[in-house]
Nucleic acid binder design. Structure first.
Length: 920
RNA sequence: GCCCAGUUAGCUCAGUUGGUUAGAGUACUUCCUUGACAUGGAAGGGGUCAGAGGUUCGAAUCCUCUACUGGGCACCA
């Protein structure tokens, strides 16, 4: 019975109960149903390292809202869950763990380490998925995938082999971004550039004597001529193989082709001319270190300069850097180089120099550009196609503002370095025959005399020499390589042709929408589009919904190190999952970051409570009422019924519209406003008049209207707040006798409200607004005159317009009930009763006699203030209407409206003035 | 340096194609525990819509510039 229902909504038990119910009844699972349209989302797989943070909570709430909404609209919805192995990030986590246990991966060896990784994944990899259940996510758990499970791994190998065979994947020796901490190469987007104030050192590079081979450093010093170069990284000078100047730079024309004695070494390097040098920057002379700088690498290629590697994979100086530097860390070496230069008098000036430095996106170490042999994916053709589908609108971004950066990025994209020198990931399916090679030990490059074998499985013997000593390439693939295949690998791609027609892949691909933050737009979104087009011949989704980032209340990024994280699990425990979801939704305008503070959850929690209590009120009146969703009251409706129907219809249209455009924040606010300030504040209060009355027919009308609107709101709100709406819904149908145990009556499977055309119109809204304004004005008088809330008062109204008179006369009970009025006297020219307060609403004169209660001075002040603002209004209207341009150019409708405003304001002013006079 | 977004009440944000006195929530003031709800109700105070200029009968809304904030991209050693 309704009476027993708690006064305060208690989310905890409700949430558990319903999630279990949904699972038990398989409401999230989806199968191929020919003839029914699918609506599919594939989850952005969280890393297995992860534990749910606010970003996940937001991302998954939004996806769940879309899925639930589309399900209610009749689509065969599928939301595929899964996790990502997370390559470097995950390996780092486990390595840290090992370190704390006094061991490391090198000591363990590859095989054991990888086994340890799998163990870790088994133990803690599903944490985040379980946390998503608490959020209420309607994921089809039977389809849970992992980027390194059998199905997805097969897809990765297939993709690699296919791309290799078509010449799109190749191996090359290039300058790549190397992270000395993670011990691996990184792709260009995995490097984050940060602006730092560094130093620009100016160094004297002495010229070698002309034509002669200098035999010692002493001789060249005598010449006294030198070139000054500027550098931010002096330690790399040990690997310089040239000095470059611009070909047209007059200052250096003479020395082009000449030689430089490279300080701190016994080497001599040429002066070359290259267009890449900007003669206006610094001294116009550049030291060239091909092995450690991307620009220099290119110069060296053009000028055919040798590479000298002076920094190794650990970020330490190599023997080639010279005996006194070899083995030093790169920053130690920098100090020593500077010191040595200074003692030799070769260090000139030092200036502060702001420049950006690349950092590893996983461990934040400073990236070292190093030459190494890596696997690359050719992107030019793929990028062109991926740009085309966005330009043509086959893939749409919400908000559209991300379209341009996306296109720009693809336009300038360079080949993707896809190999990583770590152990956790998909091992590259390339095999080498080492049967005839000398043994290749640990950490040494594999040497093979036979061509590499690229295959789905390890070959038993070498096709060329028939040798059986075969090893696999030690590298693994970039974790984003498998992510790029995610939208189709989760459906079992690649399938054999004959399986294809009945497969999930064909039914669910392309999916409908990808929901993500903008931080992985390039890293992931762009690549999924490329790969989708490449392998499926179609885009992976038609919509990309990009939401903002969650920040703290000061606008700062939430991070553990700053200590400003709000834990979504804590919030759910304290306020409920629905409250968390609502507050996230409310501020999730597409593409805009949001600032979250505790207040926001409190507000949302209060809303759930309001919903709960309004429902309790409806439950109280449900005895002997039968109702079916969509069943409309047939009895004659009252004005307030017509009004709420009109407002409700407007709401349904607006909410549906907003949902379709991913303006979910707007949808949330619309429902909130309607429910709280229209349904609760006015409709329920007015319905009480009939419910407390004795007319059974009127009672029934009111009750069925209450249910009808409530049920609509519950359905509109269900995608955003699934738990509480399901709970209320279930009570509602139980009390109205609708439930049968084997009939799955759940809000999830009920339909999204459709705004049917009612008789209710904007006229009903206008009429209702008039009554509301009258009520508010009386309440204001009561409040300002300090009339005790319990005290009944009387009213006198002068109403000229017959239409207004009818509205008021027909609804005196509204005014009486909501303004605390006992008797109302209406007329056209009634006299102002002695000692009464006055108000004018839409030309209606309202007197509230307050003998003994009225404070004449106060009332006078109030009226004078009111008159002043009315005067402003009169003037404004007069000004407009006396302006010939306005009268001629503005739409007639506007002019008419202005005239009416003027009349109304004038009447109001006159009446108020009369009242002030009569106060004396 | 280039591009994008933002700047509205103390705080967090709405404000549809230009058109009543620019709205919510929160915070603040006053009153109220009335048969849904004090996680509530009623009423009130609070804004030169970042600044300047322009278009227009009319600009928070459209255009230009400036300032600040955030983001993306590219970086010259």
């Amino acid at each position: 019975m309704a009476v027993e229902i708690s006064k305060v909504y208690e989310p905890r038990s409700v949430e558990e109960k319903w999630y279990e119910f949904w699972l038990k009844n398989k409401l999230f699972s989806c199968k191929v149903e020919k003839g029914k349209k699918p609506f599919t989302i594939v989850i952005p797989p969280p890393n297995v390292t992860g534990s749910l943070h606010m970003g996940h909570a937001l991302n998954n709430t939004l996806q769940d809202i879309i899925i639930r909404y589309q399900k209610m609209r009749g689509f065969n919805t599928l939301w595929v869950p899964g996790t990502d192995h997370g390559g470097i990030a995950t390996q780092n986590v486990v390595e840290k763990l090992l370190l704390s246990q006094g061991t490391n991966r090198q000591d363990m060896g590859r095989e054991k380490f990888v086994e340890r990784m799998w163990q870790w994944r088994r133990e803690s990899g599903d944490t985040i998925l379980n946390q998503l259940k608490k959020l209420g996510c309607s994921l089809d758990w039977d389809r849970t995938r992992f980027t390194m499970d059998e199905v997805c791994s097969r897809a990765v190998v297939f993709a690699f082999v296919n791309l290799y065979n078509r010449g799109l994947i190749y191996r090359g020796k290039r300058l790549v971004n190397w992270c000395p901490h993670c011990q691996t190469a990184l792709s260009d987007i995995e490097v984050e550039h940060e602006e730092e104030i560094g130093k620009l050192w100016h160094i004297k590079y002495p010229l070698a004597e002309n034509g002669k081979q200098p035999k010692s450093a002493k001789k060249s010093k005598k010449s006294g001529e030198y070139v000054i170069v500027a550098t931010t990284r002096p330690e790399t000078m040990l690997g310089d193989t040239a000095v470059a100047v611009h070909p047209d730079d007059k200052r250096y024309k003479k020395i082009i082709g000449g030689k430089i004695r490279l300080p701190l070494t016994d080497r001599e390097i040429p002066v070359v001319a290259d267009e890449a040098v900007d003669p206006t920057f610094g001294t116009g002379a550049v030291k060239v270190t091909p092995a450690h700088d991307p620009v220099d690498f290119d110069i060296a290629a053009r000028q055919k300069l040798p590479h000298i590697v002076v920094i190794d994979y650990q970020g330490k100086m190599t023997p080639k850097a010279g005996d006194s530097y070899a083995g030093l860390d790169r920053y130690e070496a920098r100090k020593k180089v500077l010191h040595d230069l200074e003692t030799q008098g070769l260090l000139l000036e030092t200036a502060d120099h702001p420049h950006s430095i690349g950092h590893c996106y996983r461990c934040n170490s400073v990236i070292e550009p190093l030459v190494s042999e890596q696997w690359f994916l050719k992107v030019e053709e793929m990028s062109r196609k991926a740009m085309q589908v966005v330009e043509e609108g086959k893939v749409k971004f919400y908000p559209e503002s991300w379209k341009k950066p996306y296109l720009l990025w693809l336009e300038n994209l360079r080949d993707w370095c896809i190999s990583r020198q770590i152990w956790w990931g998909h091992r590259i399916p390339v095999y080498y025959c080492v049967s005839k090679s000398s043994k290749s030990g640990k950490d040494k490059p594999i040497k093979s005399n036979c061509p590499p074998i690229v295959a789905h499985e390890m070959p038993k013997k070498c096709p060329k020499c028939k040798g059986t000593n075969i090893v696999q390439d030690p590298d693994v693939l970039d974790t984003w390589f498998s992510s790029a295949l995610w939208p189709f690998s989760v459906f079992g791609w690649p399938k054999k042709e004959e399986e294809f027609s009945s497969s999930d892949l064909e039914y669910f691909y392309p999916t409908n929408v990808l929901v993500t933050g903008h931080e992985i737009l390039y890293l992931w979104v762009a690549r999924m589009i490329q790969m989708g087009l490449e392998f499926m011949g179609d885009v992976p989704y038609s919509d990309v919904f990009i939401h903002g980032m969650v920040r703290d209340k000061f606008g700062k990024k939430m991070s553990k190190s700053l200590g400003n994280v709000i834990d979504p699990l804590e919030v759910m425990g304290k306020y409920g999952a629905d409250a968390l979801r609502f507050s996230l939704t409310q501020s999730a305008a597409p593409g805009r970051d949001m600032q979250l503070a505790e207040d926001s959850f409190v507000g949302a929690r209060n809303f759930t409570n309001k919903l709960w209590n309004a429902s309790r009120f409806v439950f109280m009146h449900l005895q002997n009422v039968t109702w079916q969703p969509g069943f409309m009251a047939v009895w004659p409706l009252d004005l307030c019924d017509m009004w709420i129907l009109a407002e409700y219809r407007l709401l349904v249209n607006k909410v549906t519209d907003a949902m379709n455009k991913y303006n979910i924040d707007e949808a949330a606010r619309l429902i909130y406003d309607f429910f709280w300030s229209k349904y609760c504040d006015w409709y329920i209060e007015l319905a009480k008049i009939r419910l407390m009355g004795s007319n059974e027919r009127n009672k029934k009308t009111a009750v069925s209207m209450l249910i009808e609107i409530l049920s609509g709101v519950l359905r509109l709100l269900h995608p955003i707040m699934p738990f509480i709406t399901e709970e209320i819904w279930s009570i509602l149908i139980e009390l109205t006798g609708l439930k049968s145990p084997d009939q799955l009556v759940t809000i999830m499977t009920s339909s999204w409200p459709v705004a049917e055309k009612e008789k209710a119109s904007s006229k009903d809204v206008e009429d209702m607004n008039l009554l509301q304004n009258i009520i508010i004005s009386v309440r204001t008088i009561r409040s300002e005159m300090r009339v005790p809330p319990g005290k009944k008062i009387n009213m006198v109204m002068n109403i000229i317009s017959p239409r207004q008179m009818k509205i008021v006369a027909d609804h005196l009970d509204y005014i009486k009930a909501l303004a605390g009025v006992e008797n109302i006297l209406t007329g056209q020219r009634l006299k102002r009763p002695a000692q009464s307060a006055v108000s004018v609403v839409s030309e209606i004169e309202i007197f509230v006699p307050l003998a003994g209660l009225i404070d004449i001075e106060k009332e006078k002040q109030r009226l004078v203030k009111e008159i002043q603002s009315t005067e402003v209004e009169v003037e404004r209207c007069n000004k407009n209407l006396s302006n010939q341009s306005f009268v001629q150019k503005a739409p007639k409708k506007e002019v008419e409206r202005m005239k009416n405003r003027l009349i109304e304001a004038k009447v109001k002013k006159e009446r108020l003035q009369e009242s002030v006079k009569s106060l004396e």
